[in-house]
């Protein structure tokens, strides 16, 4: 099964994506991650103002079958969280790179080592069976 890996994004090995928007970075989970988890039914995100270091757990995402920690691919202060996901998390499954975005951070400059789309697609292929 092949997954959508948009070329313009950067990815963490723990399946978060990062997109630059002005001075901010928007973070979500990849198509591969949402597909592996299955229907997302539960989500915990940080409060606005939370300061994250790269690699910090910033929340948890859960399906019927599994739970998964969310790790900050970049450091920074959380300036927005996707409030639409509070009542329904379906957007994460249906549009993980769009309406299913999770948080927006004002980047501190610190970052995990991120993968480009090609490297991330290979990272997904390694784990698919």
């Amino acid at each position: 099964m092949s997954h959508n890996v948009p070329a313009e994004l950067r990815y963490s090995k723990s399946d978060e994506w990062v997109r630059a928007e002005g001075d901010d970075l928007v973070i979500g989970v990849s198509d591969f991650a949402q597909d592996q988890l299955g229907d997302i039914v539960y989500l915990e995100l940080p409060k606005v103002g939370t300061v994250l270091a790269p690699g910090d757990s910033f929340g948890v995402i859960e399906s019927v079958k599994a739970s998964s920690d969310l790790y900050a691919p970049v450091g920074g202060e959380v300036v927005a969280v996707n409030g639409n996901l509070e009542t329904s998390q379906e957007a994460i499954n249906q549009d993980p790179y769009g309406a299913g975005w999770l948080i927006r951070v004002r980047a501190s400059g610190a970052a995990e080592e991120l993968l480009d789309a090609e490297a991330y697609a290979a990272h997904c292929a390694d784990r698919a069976h």
């Binding site: 099964m1 299955g38 019927v64 069976h129």
Partner: peptide, 24 residues
């Protein structure tokens, strides 16, 4: 049929087809 296969009790079995909630 595109089911996702997993190990269960020594067996390679489908964990889901269309999605757990849909099937449930």
């Amino acid at each position: 049929a595109g089911a996702r296969m997993v190990e269960f009790g020594g067996w390679e079995m489908p964990v889901q087809y269309s999605g757990i909630i849909d099937e449930h």
